[in-house]
Structures are given as structure tokens and as C-alpha cells.
Design a protein around this nucleic acid. Structure first.
Length: 460
RNA sequence: GCGCCGGUGCCCGAGCGGACUAAGGGAGUGGCCUGCAAAGCCAUGAUUCACGGGUUCAAAUCCCGUCCGGCGCUCCA
């Protein structure tokens, strides 16, 4: 049975979906005010992995991930670039989806935008006000009253008293609020900002309310899993919980948070000056190797990104691909049943809080086993291992085929011709000529592997 | 300041009281295979898990303290 660490319960829980055989997930997406960075990729990958695994496990998953397209940062940024807020948001949303596609993150079933849900949010805020959970500060907006929620702080294991003591430690507290923990549901309009009408005057919604509105609209008042980056647990997710429960909704039954990714020992952020855009990184490395590297680290462990680690993962990825090339060249039976023992070990590893490092270890063990079987002339055993490797790699979103290269059909023909010439030379024991051709190909970035079933080449 | 999470071989990184004789990957070294390579296989590598105490029959795993790093404390994936 699938089990995982539930942030709110602070323990590993056995997962039982609300509706048997189905899983509903909501994952906080980005605020589109800048290019996506590597940290976004890690969080997206964490939930992509969870989604794929649950599907592999036979669940029908509904996956919702939003785009926050109105927010202080977007307004601020737009004022700098001279674009309108919608233009800026659309531009960065495009960048986000492009890079996530490149990274192999499956698209969500629904990708709601905050600005499409303002009406629902206004309604929701009205409901909270009717219940006495919200109050108005003149010219500022509508605020949620945290007193209404006794468990406030449970997502990060703190009490309201502890949080009050810490309030203002880092960010100045607005003195107009009744309680330092109260937060904005609706922000009154300032000159020049995008506005929507509301019973409290023109303005725009606060950040937390949007996710509550979108999640409950698309998944219902109760759904299985709410996810996001660790840094969103407080205040964002905590405030979602407060709002939803303030309106007596069951809301998310489980919370999952993905750990941060650090560069040079610190969280990557614009303000730290170590901001690496996903686009730049994906240009500089193999996206599959980056994915493998991230999967080799447990999703709840803070991960350090370094050139050494990336190079190591590139080697590991190459090992997987080399096996796949060898299996293909050997013409292994593609209809072979996957090694059942390996499948069971993989499921056990992943059922235990999505243990991708252990799951990957099963895959690598399988590759060794399969190579050894082929060396020993046991294609049946190799085929069973190969089938398992293919199935498990797919479950993890790893592609074993060579990276696609377009527009080089003529080049391929030319290489094939040289490889054939080299084979002739080798048959004739003219190794000097054969090596000359191999060197020539190497200069062009083509590596050769001689197998009992002929020579395989690949570009490097 | 308060709270939470970490510190494991050359590097990345699992494990979180007993089959740990510490997974897996990368790099290295030796061997086999190969015309030579590449790929692959086999072997090799921490008497030890930041440091100091403690609990236990048993600790990398639990407790206390110290040092170092990260995250959160209403911008954040």
C-alpha cells in the first residue's frame, strides 16, 4: 500500500483515497513574474513523480496545478517593463510551460488561472465574513481573523502563541491588523493596479484564497492530496487551511511538501544572486540526467546542485542508455514479462514515501543483472530484466532512447556508410584503416561500440 | 531570537535501534572480454556514519551538549 509523509499529521500515513481507485491532487504552481528556475523544476518533478507513480500503481489521477497570474510581484515587475500585467504574466507563463515541457513534466489535467476565479473568491470571502471569520480594514482590504482557527500553525508544528512571538522577526507587522497572524483575503485597489469589483470596493484577491477557490472548484470540497514546495507550507498553505476550515470545508486530506534545492549551499533565489534559470541549465545539460539526479535524492531531502553531481548523473544516465542500446541491438524479446521480483522490490521502495533513490537502485541492479545475463548467453533472463527496466524507467519518467536530433538524416546515412566501410576493413583485418575511420568519426562526435550483433554508433 | 531539518567513502546520495559484513550512481585502481577500443562483467574501496557524553544485550539509527550548514517565522517552488 502507498504510504507517505503527511506534513500536517507529521508522520508517515497509509494512503487511502477518498474514492477508491482515484486520486485528486492539487499542486501550487508558480507566480509568473520571472523565468522559472531550477528550484521550480525540482518541485514540479517531485509531484510529477508522485503522479506517475500513483498512475503506475493503477490509480486514476486528476492533477490540478495553478498559475498565479495576479500578485504584487507581477504588478511591480510590469511597472518596470512597461507591459500590462496580463502581458507580463502570459509571457512568463509561456516560459514556464515551455521549460517544464522540455524537462519532461507531464502537463496537468487542469491549469486554472487566479484571474479566472475572482468571482468565486469574492463569494468565498463573503461567506467567511458572514461567519465572522473576516473583517475589513478601511482602505486596506478584508482580513482573515486567525482567532477563528485554533490549530493555526499545525502545518509547521507551531502554536499560534509561538507564531505571534516570532511575528515581525523578519518582516514588519501591519499595526492595523487585529492580530499579527491575520492575513489579507482581499486587497483594496491602489492607483494604477488591476482591479475587480467586490462588496468591499475595487481591489484584488489575496494570494491564499485563490488556491482554495480553484482547488475546491475543480476537485471538490474535499480532495486527496495538496502539494507544493516546502517554503509554501507557511504561511501560504497554513492560510489555505485556515480559510477552508473557516468555511467548514474538509479541503485537503493530505499535505505533501517537496524539499528545496540549494546552489552553493543556499536556497536559490533572485535575491541571493545564485538564480539559475531552468532554460540555461537545460541548455547546458541533458534534461534526463537532471531528472535522474533529482530522483536519486529523496524528495524530502534538501538537495545540493553542483557540476560534479550533474556530471555523475550524466554518467548514470549514459549507463541506462548504453544498456538499452545493447538490448535493442541484441534483439531481445520485447513481449517478455517483466521480472516480477524486481517489480515487487520497486513497488516496495516507492510505496515507502516515494523512495525514488531505492527504486532507482532496483533499476540499476536490473541493468547489471541484464548485462550479465547477456554476457552469459541467457537472452530469456536478459529480456525479463529489460522489460522491467523499461517499465520502471517509464514509471519514473525516464526515457531510455537517445535524445532526439532532428534534420540529420543525411548525416546518419553518411555515418552508416563509414561504419560499413570500417566493418569491411575489420573483416579484412586492416585494423589501421578501421581505426582511421573510427578516429575520423570520433572527431565528428560519433562514438562506436562493436557488439556481436554489429556496430552501434551514437553521437556524444 | 524562536522553531524545524540535516552533517554518511574522493564526489552525489540511500539507510534512521539487530541479516550494516553501510544500497545505488559517478570517479579511481586491478582483472576478464575486445585486433585495439567502446560497452559490459568481476574484484577493490567508510573496522566506520561531524565531535563529545549517555541509554541499550545491541546505535549511523534513540537522548543530551558542542560545532557547522539549510529552511521557516506573512516575497518565495
Amino acid at each position: 500500500m502507498v504510504s507517505f509523509f503527511d506534513t500536517r499529521r507529521r508522520e508517515i500515513v497509509a494512503f487511502e483515497p477518498l474514492v477508491e481507485g482515484r486520486v485528486s491532487m492539487y499542486v501550487c504552481g508558480p507566480t509568473v513574474y520571472d523565468h522559472p528556475h531550477v528550484g521550480h523544476a525540482r518541485t514540479a518533478l517531485t509531484f510529477d513523480m508522485i503522479r506517475r507513480y500513483l498512475q503506475w500503481r493503477g490509480y486514476q489521477v486528476t492533477f490540478v496545478s495553478n498559475i498565479t497570474d495576479i500578485d504584487d510581484k507581477i504588478i511591480h515587475r510590469a511597472s518596470q517593463t512597461g507591459e500590462t500585467e496580463p502581458e507580463l504574466a502570459a509571457r512568463y507563463e509561456r516560459a514556464y510551460t515551455e521549460q517544464m515541457d522540455r524537462f519532461g513534466i507531464a502537463r496537468p489535467d487542469h491549469r486554472p488561472h487566479a484571474t479566472e476565479y475572482v468571482e468565486e473568491m469574492v463569494e468565498f470571502i463573503g461567506d467567511l465574513a458572514d461567519r465572522g471569520a473576516a473583517y475589513v480594514i478601511e482602505n486596506k482590504g478584508v482580513y482573515f481573523s486567525v482567532d477563528a482557527h485554533a490549530r493555526y500553525g499545525d502545518l509547521i508544528g507551531r502554536t499560534p502563541e509561538e507564531l505571534r512571538e516570532g511575528a515581525g522577526a523578519r518582516i514588519e507587522v501591519d499595526e492595523d491588523k487585529a492580530d499579527p497572524l491575520d492575513f489579507a483575503l482581499w486587497k483594496a485597489a491602489k492607483p494604477g493596479e488591476p482591479v475587480w469589483d467586490s462588496p468591499w470596493g475595487p481591489g484584488r484577491p489575496g494570494w491564499h484564497i485563490e488556491c482554495v477557490a480553484m482547488a475546491t472548484d475543480l476537485l471538490g470540497e474535499a480532495f486527496d492530496i495538496h502539494g507544493g514546495g516546502d517554503d509554501l507550507a507557511f504561511p501560504h498553505h497554513q492560510n489555505e487551511v485556515a480559510e477552508a476550515e473557516g468555511a467548514e470545508l474538509e479541503f485537503a486530506r493530505h499535505w505533501i511538501h517537496g524539499a528545496m534545492l540549494n546552489v552553493n549551499g543556499e536556497k536559490m533565489a533572485k535575491s541571493q544572486g545564485n538564480f539559475t534559470t531552468l532554460s540555461d541549465l537545460l541548455d547546458a545539460c541533458d534534461p534526463q540526467a537532471l531528472r535522474l539526479l533529482m530522483l536519486q535524492t529523496h524528495y524530502r531531502t534538501v538537495m545540493e546542485l553542483s557540476d560534479d553531481a550533474l556530471a555523475g548523473a550524466a554518467g548514470a544516465m549514459e549507463r541506462l542508455r548504453a544498456w538499452h542500446r545493447r538490448a535493442t541491438a541484441a534483439g531481445l524479446d520485447r513481449s517478455a514479462a517483466p521480472d516480477p521480483d524486481a517489480m515487487a522490490r520497486f513497488a516496495a521502495a516507492m510505496d515507502d514515501d516515494f523512495g525514488t533513490p531505492a527504486g532507482l537502485a532496483v533499476v540499476f541492479d536490473l541493468v547489471r543483472e541484464a548485462n550479465a545475463a547477456l554476457d552469459a548467453g541467457e537472452p530469456g533472463r536478459a529480456a525479463a530484466a529489460h522489460a522491467a527496466v523499461c517499465d520502471l524507467a517509464a514509471a519514473l519518467g525516464l526515457m531510455l532512447g537517445e535524445p532526439a536530433r532532428e534534420g540529420d538524416r543525411e548525416l546518419a546515412a553518411a555515418i552508416n556508410k563509414l561504419v560499413a566501410e570500417r566493418d569491411e576493413a575489420r573483416k579484412a583485418k586492416d585494423f589501421a584503416a578501421a581505426d582511421r575511420i573510427r578516429d575520423q568519426l570520433a572527431d565528428r562526435g560519433v562514438a562506436l561500440e562493436d557488439t556481436p550483433n554489429g556496430t552501434i554508433w551514437r553521437t556524444i
